[in-house]
Simulated assay, not measured.
Amino acid sequence: MHTQRAKEIAQSPDMKNVTYNGEQIYIQHVNDENDTARIFPINDSQNEKEVLVANLKEE
């Protein structure tokens, strides 16, 4: 995924189908400077992590 698209999804009020390693996730924040995103699994909001935007997939 491209950083700009990840930012659009993060700012959208609608839930999008985005996955990381096959697991559906929520994008909390996107960092332009290093092309990373703060994410967490839909079913586990306490399990936040920072990942490369390039590793996110929009289904």
Rank of each mutant, 00 (worst) to 15 (best):
M1R: 13
M1G: 15
H2K: 07
H2W: 06
H2D: 14
T3H: 10
Q4G: 08
R5I: 05
R5Y: 04
R5D: 12
A6H: 01
E8G: 01
I9Y: 01
I9M: 08
I9A: 06
A10S: 13
Q11S: 05
Q11D: 09
Q11G: 03
Q11E: 11
S12M: 02
S12R: 09
P13D: 14
P13A: 10
D14W: 06
M15N: 11
K16W: 08
N17A: 14
N17P: 10
N17S: 14
N17T: 09
N17W: 03
V18Q: 09
V18M: 09
T19S: 14
T19A: 13
N21S: 11
E23M: 06
E23W: 02
Q24M: 07
Q24H: 00
Q24A: 06
I25G: 09
I25W: 01
I25C: 07
Y26H: 10
I27C: 01
Q28I: 13
H29V: 13
H29T: 14
N31F: 04
D32Q: 11
D32T: 12
E33G: 13
E33D: 13
E33A: 11
T36E: 01
T36I: 02
A37L: 04
I39W: 01
I39F: 09
I39K: 06
F40M: 13
P41W: 02
P41N: 02
I42A: 12
I42R: 08
N43Q: 14
N43S: 15
N43I: 14
S45K: 07
S45E: 01
S45H: 06
S45C: 04
Q46H: 11
Q46K: 13
Q46W: 03
N47V: 00
E48F: 01
E48V: 11
E48N: 08
E48Q: 13
E48S: 10
K49D: 00
K49I: 09
K49N: 14
E50Y: 07
V51E: 01
V51A: 02
V51K: 10
L52S: 14
L52Q: 15
L52K: 15
L52T: 08
A54C: 11
A54N: 13
A54H: 05
A54G: 12
A54S: 15
N55C: 08
L56T: 00
L56Y: 05
K57A: 11
E58V: 09
E59P: 06
E59G: 05
